[in-house]
Amino acid sequence: MTEMMATRDAYGQALVELGRQMDKIVVLDADLSKSTKTALFAEKFPLRFFNIGISEADMMGTAAGLAASGYIPFTSTFGVFATGRVYDQIRNTIAYTKLNVKIVASHTGITVGEDGASHQALEDIALMRVLPNMMVVVPADGRQTYQAVKAVARYEGPIYLRLGRPKVPQVIPAGLFFELGKAQLLKEGKDLAYLAAGITVKPSLEAARILESQGIDAAVVNVHTIKPLDEELLLQVAKKTGALVTVEEHSVIGGLGGAVTELISEHHPVPIIRIGINDTFGESGTPEALLKKYGLTSENLVNAGQAVVQKKRQLSC
């Protein structure tokens, strides 16, 4: 059986290791340290942990001040509070200043689950992506998160790292290492390509396997860095396959689908279908029930894959 791990758990563990290696790392939280898993760091390094209380705006500004003094602050809370709630603070005091602040959202997307729409960040990638100087990273599983957190710590500049609440299986092969800005071709294919991020990598791989039995050869790319996009690899895949399906646990507007569509339409137009949340808020339910209801399943991805291939064929007629 595949090992299950929540990306936020991997984050908590990686922070502890980084805390030992890098004495400039400090961690800030806004009263959610048990959920965001920064409590692990707090326990080991109490003097380098600051609970700012339920004051996310203040947390971002405090982190900026620490970064301006040479520290490497990681700030953690849920995705809705880490982005939209503090947008102006991030825009003016972190992105504009290009300060070395790491914004790590532990609960994002529809799989936040039972807490419902108020707590399900479905627009956070879009918000962060349009800010100059901001990098946006969405790891696919626990191991990749562990590697990503370490890469993020060593990168100088503001980064939004998008993690998730539920336990997820390992999908990235152990030997495939994370590199900021480098998308990962997980499966070759010539008929279409799934471009996925985060927990949607797994159903994309499953969909590709199902299509294979139908004689359709689908590639799968893990686009863990949404900004900057790995333009070289994505264009290469677009040229080879001529049909793309973007898959994300986020609005189809402004996130991975938006970013890919901007790139592809400008440089190598091919049919694209964007799978994600269709411009709507979420709701309460189990993560599994929500993923099903909102179409983030391998079955739905198979349908999208068939449809995009159909589109490609119609265009070439």
């Binding site: 705006a57 500004g61 003094s69 520290y71 825009r91 005091t93």
Partner: peptide
């Protein structure tokens, strides 16, 4: 200039961060 400002209400938070950094140092 130690901190970019202009959008009001944000400077004290940044100053707090600098004061915490001074203490850590």
């Amino acid at each position: 200039i130690e901190m970019s400002t202009g959008s009001l209400g944000q400077g004290l938070s940044a100053a707090n961060g600098m004061a915490l950094a001074a203490r850590l140092d």
